[in-house]
């Protein structure tokens, strides 16, 4: 087994139940084995493609525009004050 579900889930900020570990372990490792088909390819002199367009450093003029008002930006937050998002305390 290549993937330790517990370790990867922690990196991905997902809590997983024992049941999920049992379900995901074989599934993820099965998919990974399938991905390893790519090892058959000789890619020694092949460059990577991250993006299909030949665009780079798309620049624009620094023009001020309209922003979303703060009240609107906060509307969807599960918890907020009149100015800030609020999260559980992180410093004792």
């Amino acid at each position: 087994m290549k993937i330790s579900v517990e370790h990867i889930a922690k990196l991905a900020r997902l809590s997983v139940s024992e049941e999920e570990k049992e379900l995901f372990g074989p599934q993820l490792n099965g998919i990974l084995s399938y991905m390893e088909k790519l090892d058959e390819l000789n890619t020694k002199d092949v460059g990577p493609t991250s993006h299909v367009l030949s665009l780079s450093n798309v620049m624009r003029d620094d023009m001020p525009g309209n922003s979303i008002p703060r009240e609107d930006a906060l509307l969807n937050a599960p918890d907020h004050t009149d100015k800030f998002y609020r999260v559980p305390k992180i410093i004792e």
């Binding site: 900020r13 993820l28 998919i31």
Partner: peptide
């Protein structure tokens, strides 16, 4: 994230985190 995402989304997030 555990309660908000479904199984397939979790699988893909974990695969991508791994790769």
């Amino acid at each position: 994230r555990a309660q908000g995402f479904g199984a397939e989304v979790k699988r893909r997030i974990m695969l991508g985190t791994f790769t």
